[in-house]
C-alpha cells in the first residue's frame, strides 16, 4: 500500500486547440505540503482544478486516493467530498449565513445531523478565529474573514486533501497574514495540502516541496530549501529573482 494520495501520470489537457498542461507527472504523498508557483497563465489553477475534476483532462491518468478520475467515474461527488478546495475569489454562498455556509455540505452531502454539523462548523470557525461572525452573511465580512470562512467551510467536510488556488491574492496586505496563519496552523495539524501561491514566505515556512510551472509544464520540482538555495533551471532563477 503506497501512501501516494495523488498520482498524476503523463497528463495532458487542452482548451480547444490550446494545450494548457503538457505531460504532467506528479505524485503527492500523504501529509505532504506542496507549493506550486509560476507566472500567470502557466496552468497552475488548471492543474489543481483537474485534481478534483472541476476541469477534465484529455490524456493520462489522475488517481486521487486510489480512485482514477475518468469520464465514467460514478462517484465523482464522493471523491470531491474528500478533496477540499479554497478559491481565489472565496466563492462563499452569499445567500447563506457563515454558519450555514459551513453546515450546508455536511448536512446535505454527508447526511450529518444538523446539530452535529453546527458543532463541527463552530469548531472549525473557532480554529480560523471567526466563530463570532457565524450568524453574519458573507457580504458583511472583510475579505480576510471571508477567505477564512471558506477554509472552514472546506474543512467541515473533513477532507483528506486541501487544494488552495491563490487564496491570498485577492486580499489586501493586512488581511493576507490572517489567512496565511490559518493555513500554517492547518499545515501543522498534518493536512495534505497543495497550495498555489506567490507567498514565498509561506512556502519557506511550511512547504515540503516547491513546484515551479511554466507554459503548462512542471519545470522544476525540489525540496523547499533546495528550491530557494539553488534552483536548477534558468527560468526558475529568473522567476525567483523577480518575486523575491
Amino acid at each position: 500500500m503506497s501512501d501516494k494520495i495523488i498520482q498524476i501520470t503523463e497528463m495532458n489537457k487542452w482548451f480547444g486547440d490550446f494545450q494548457v498542461l503538457k505531460n504532467i507527472n506528479l505524485e503527492v504523498e500523504k501529509n505532504k505540503k506542496i507549493v506550486v508557483c509560476g507566472p500567470s497563465g502557466s496552468g497552475k489553477s488548471t492543474l489543481i482544478r483537474c485534481i478534483n475534476r472541476l476541469e477534465e483532462h484529455q490524456q493520462g491518468s489522475i488517481i486521487v486516493d486510489g480512485n482514477e478520475l475518468t469520464e465514467d467515474t460514478k462517484d465523482i461527488e464522493k471523491i470531491r467530498a474528500e478533496v477540499g478546495m479554497v478559491f481565489q475569489q472565496f466563492n462563499l454562498f452569499p445567500h447563506l449565513s457563515i454558519l450555514d455556509n459551513c453546515t450546508l455540505a455536511p448536512i446535505w452531502v454527508k447526511k450529518m445531523p444538523k446539530k452535529d454539523a453546527e458543532e463541527l462548523a463552530l469548531q472549525h470557525l473557532e480554529k480560523v478565529q471567526i466563530a463570532d461572525q457565524a450568524s453574519k452573511y458573507p457580504g458583511q465580512l472583510s475579505g480576510g474573514q471571508q477567505q477564512r470562512c471558506a477554509i472552514a467551510r472546506a474543512l467541515c467536510m473533513e477532507p483528506k486533501i486541501m487544494l488552495f488556488d491563490e487564496p491570498t491574492s485577492a486580499l489586501d496586505p493586512e488581511m493576507i497574514k490572517e489567512v496565511l496563519d490559518a493555513m500554517v496552523n492547518l499545515a501543522k495539524a498534518g493536512m495534505t495540502m497543495i497550495v498555489v501561491t506567490h507567498e514565498m514566505g509561506f512556502a519557506k515556512e511550511v512547504a515540503d516541496e516547491v513546484i515551479f510551472m511554466d507554459e503548462g509544464m512542471i519545470v522544476e520540482r525540489a525540496e523547499t530549501k533546495e528550491f530557494f538555495a539553488n534552483p536548477k533551471s534558468d527560468r526558475t532563477k529568473l522567476f525567483l529573482s523577480q518575486i523575491l
Binding site: 478534483n52 472541476l54 470531491r80 467530498a81 474528500e82 478559491f87 454562498f93 446535505w108 454527508k110 471558506a150
Partner: peptide
C-alpha cells in the same frame, strides 16, 4: 458567477443538490 458552481461541486454536491441548495 462560475465560482458558485465550482464551490458547490468542490464540496461534493451533485447536480440536484448544487442547484437546489
Amino acid at each position: 458567477p462560475r465560482g458558485q458552481y465550482d464551490a458547490a461541486k468542490s464540496l461534493g454536491m451533485g447536480y440536484w443538490k448544487m442547484h437546489i441548495l
